[in-house]
Design a protein around this nucleic acid. Sequence first.
DNA 1: GTCGTGACTAGCC
DNA 2: CGGCTAGCCACGA
Length: 105
Amino acid sequence: MAQNATVFQKKVWKILQQIPAGKITTYSVIAKALGNKNAARAVGNACNKNPFVPAVPCHRIVKNNGEIGGYSRGVKKKIALLEKEGITIKNNRVLDLNSKLFSFR
DNA sequence: GTCGTGACTAGCC
DNA sequence: CGGCTAGCCACGA
């Protein structure tokens, strides 16, 4: 639960919730939004333990490279969810990543 | 209290 | 271009 969560995790989830359906973001973007571009690891870690599944769209997070990366519930599930939202996945990769990439600023 | 791990990224050789 | 190292954050053992 969020009560046991740290501020960092809360921030991550909050950012994730800002992502509109059909859009995706990268670990770097989130990390930067948190203020630490090197916190990409922590972001993934936070998602892995996120209690708001699937309230928190962890599946909308992809690697900066455009790869799917991983998912607590299995990459397959992640792909299925993304495709359902209009995102095309090919060979564990996101197509039109640039087009669907969501930036916070 | 210290070490190691994790869905990563960037820099260096 | 490819592989390795270092850095960041939080948590479990």
